[in-house]
C-alpha cells in the first residue's frame, strides 16, 4: 500500500491547519502564517506561537474547475486570499458557497473541514477553510 501523504508533515502541520496557529515576532511584532522559525521582517528568531481569530475579508480568489486526482468530489474549488482581522493574509479554500456568490470584500470565518483524503485507505486531512459569515454580519 503506497501512501501519498507524508505522515510526519500531516502531524507537524496540524496546529496551523486546525487552529490557525501562527508565529508572532517578539522583536518587531510581525505575525506569520504559516508559522516561521525566523522573522522575515527583522530576522529575529525570538518568535512565539499565537492563534489567529479566523475572521476576515476576501482579498482575492480564483475558481479551480480542473482539479488534481482525488479532488473531483470537491470541485469546483474556490481558493481565496483572506485578510484576517490581525492583518495577516491566509490562502485557503472556501466552503458552503457557490462561485457566483463570492465577492472581493466578502466577510468570512474559518471552519474545520476535510481538505483531502489519501485514497480510501490513507489519512484524511482536516484543515481550516473559510465560509461566508451570515448575511446580517456582512454589513
Amino acid at each position: 500500500m503506497s501512501m501519498k501523504f507524508s505522515i510526519p508533515k500531516t502531524w507537524r502541520e496540524r496546529k496551523p491547519h486546525y487552529l490557525l496557529e501562527a508565529t508572532k515576532c517578539k522583536n518587531c511584532g510581525k505575525i506569520h502564517y504559516p508559522p516561521r522559525t525566523v522573522c522575515d521582517k527583522c530576522g529575529s528568531r525570538d518568535l512565539e506561537r499565537t492563534r489567529l481569530s479566523g475572521e476576515g475579508r476576501i482579498v482575492s480568489y480564483t475558481v479551480q474547475y480542473v482539479v488534481l486526482d482525488g479532488f473531483r468530489d470537491y470541485a469546483p474549488i474556490i481558493y481565496a486570499i483572506v485578510e484576517l482581522k490581525e492583518g495577516v493574509r491566509v490562502l485557503a479554500p472556501l466552503t458552503d458557497v457557490k462561485p457566483g456568490d463570492v465577492k472581493i470584500g466578502l466577510k468570512v470565518k474559518a471552519v474545520l473541514r476535510k481538505v483531502s483524503e489519501d485514497g480510501k485507505l490513507g489519512l484524511i486531512r482536516y484543515a481550516i477553510k473559510f465560509k461566508p459569515l451570515e448575511a446580517e454580519s456582512q454589513k
Binding site: 468530489d73 466552503t95 471552519v111 474545520l112 473541514r113 476535510k114 481538505v115 484524511i124
Partner: peptide, 12 residues
C-alpha cells in the same frame, strides 16, 4: 457537505 463528517460536525 462533501467536506463534512462526524469530526467536523462534532467540532462545530
Amino acid at each position: 457537505g462533501v467536506d463534512e463528517d462526524t469530526i467536523t460536525i462534532g467540532y462545530e
